[in-house]
Amino acid sequence: MTNILVVYTSTLGNTHKMAEAVADGARSIAATSVILREATAATKEEVRACDALLLGTPVRHRSADARVKQFIENTIEVLWLTDELVGKVGGVFSVGGGYGNAGAGVEITQLGLLAAMAGAGMIIVPLPKTTPGAGVAGSHWGAHGRSGGPNMEPIGITAEMLQCAYHHGANVARVAVALQGKDLMARGNQAPSPELIALFSGTQTA
């Protein structure tokens, strides 16, 4: 089985809907096992065990939600030190409203999530414009649900946006299935010291 982990946080429920659609898309690919986990509940063990990680967030002032940032700092950053994410597959999705009609900081937000994955050596799956639903929920980097109107009126996310999230989840899962068991990345760089790993993992005080 190929293990897919979907980690997200949600305040108004829209990102939760996107996360469920992403998870459903991943489950549509044969031989996958999918776990949907809120960011504050996701564990290092679950991330270690996954073959692909999909990370989703509401857009907060052109950045990720603090709970997702905490997951990145407490989990992805620690596993980056020990090279345990190298070669795993990664993808991102988001939801936001904001003022105006130009994306509300979605590109900056998604690139921030992808930067953490790239730094950890993950293989990133983008969102091609050929993806169903990408006309309303595509940002090149991942699925995005526009949940607010141009004057910040709450409108929620649409079925077409959820369709895009579904296919993004399926794309990531499809890549993970194809790459499972293949160690494609060169190895041999000097590992961080045990003291530094202990410091970042919280077993040593700064």
Rank of each mutant, 00 (worst) to 15 (best):
E107P: 02
S193W: 06
A165N: 04
L81V: 06
G181I: 05
S139W: 11
A102Y: 11
A198G: 12
G181E: 06
E160M: 06
G135Y: 09
F93A: 01
R146M: 11
G98F: 02
I124V: 12
G202W: 08
E107W: 05
P154Q: 08
N189A: 14
N189R: 10
G100Y: 08
W80E: 07
A134C: 07
S201I: 07
A118E: 14
T109P: 01
I157C: 06
G103R: 05
N189I: 14
E84L: 04
T130S: 14
H168D: 14
V78R: 03
I124A: 12
A173R: 01
V95G: 03
H140P: 01
L162Q: 13
L113W: 00
L162I: 04
L81W: 12
R174A: 13
A173P: 00
G96H: 01
N151R: 12
N101F: 09
G133L: 01
M185P: 03
A143V: 11
G103E: 03
V177N: 02
V86L: 09
A186Q: 15
V106P: 00
P128N: 03
V175M: 11
L79N: 05
R187M: 09
T203D: 14
E195T: 12
E160W: 03
V78S: 08
A198T: 11
I108H: 09
I124Y: 09
T131Q: 09
P192Q: 07
G149I: 06
G91R: 02
A206S: 14
G121A: 10
P154D: 13
K129N: 12
G181W: 10
M152I: 10
E84H: 03
G105I: 08
R174D: 08
P126S: 04
G90V: 01
Y99T: 07
I197V: 15
A118D: 11
Q190C: 08
T130V: 11
P126L: 06
G145Q: 10
A120H: 01
G96M: 05
A191R: 13
S94D: 02
T203Q: 14
S201E: 15
G97K: 00
P132T: 08
V106S: 13
F93H: 00
G148F: 14
D83H: 08
G98E: 01
V95F: 07
V86H: 02
V172E: 02
T203S: 14
P154M: 03
T82L: 10
